[in-house]
Simulated assay, not measured.
Amino acid sequence: MTKYYSPIKRFIEPFDGKTRALIGGLTGRLATRMGAAIRHSTRLFQESPAQRKLLLIVTDGRPADYDDGGDIRYLQEDTRMAVKEAQRQGVHAFCISIDPSGGEYLPAIFGSGHYSILSNINRLPQSVPEIYLRLRGK
């Protein structure tokens, strides 16, 4: 059985050198199952006592799956519904994408102002303050 979900850091674990190394070593694998990942993460958030719950999604492309038969609309709608379900449970989903065509589908999935498109992932560190200010205003 292939493992499709790989936790990097749990809420109770420290943000330490090991975590930084894991984040730095991330690579793309298989498909972008956003809906499933959002639902799974939302369930994990229910264990957290935090008053403000932010799910930050960093992706290289649109929702995709190998067993969907190529139905892009279904995958986008599934992800949109997962975002709505998360919101109803008090989890704010925000997406950072490096897909240049993200403007074609991210507004429908996450809503206006709930996503950011970077021209290059190396711009992420410089973009964090702007993204933080946008999120803080929510």
Rank of each mutant, 00 (worst) to 15 (best):
D99R: 07
R43L: 07
K84T: 13
I57V: 14
I12K: 11
I131D: 07
Y4T: 13
L118Q: 12
F110W: 03
G61E: 03
I131E: 01
L44W: 02
D65G: 11
S112E: 13
G113P: 08
L22P: 00
F15I: 09
K84V: 12
E85A: 07
G24E: 14
K53A: 04
D16Q: 10
I117H: 05
T42Q: 01
N120C: 11
A37E: 07
G113E: 01
A31M: 15
F11Y: 15
I131M: 05
F11S: 14
E85S: 06
L54S: 06
G69S: 09
T27S: 15
G24T: 08
R80A: 10
L22E: 15
P125T: 03
G35V: 04
E104R: 09
A31Y: 15
C95T: 06
D99A: 10
A64N: 09
P7D: 13
Q76V: 06
K9N: 14
Q126P: 04
L75W: 05
G102F: 00
Y5F: 15
S127G: 02
H40M: 04
A37S: 15
Q87T: 06
S48F: 00
Y66K: 00
G69K: 01
A31L: 13
I98G: 01
Y115W: 09
L44E: 09
S48D: 14
V83E: 05
Q126I: 08
F15R: 12
Y132M: 09
Y5C: 09
M34L: 12
D68F: 04
D99T: 10
G137W: 00
L55A: 04
Y66I: 00
D99G: 11
S101Q: 06
F11H: 13
E47V: 02
I8R: 10
I57C: 07
P63W: 05
Q89P: 00
M81K: 11
K138Y: 02
R20H: 11
G102D: 07
A64Q: 05
H40Q: 05
T19Y: 03
D67S: 05
A31T: 14
S6T: 15
Y4Q: 13
R73N: 03
D68M: 01
D60H: 03
S127E: 09
R39F: 04
A21R: 15
G70H: 05
G111Y: 08
R20M: 14
E13S: 14
F11R: 11
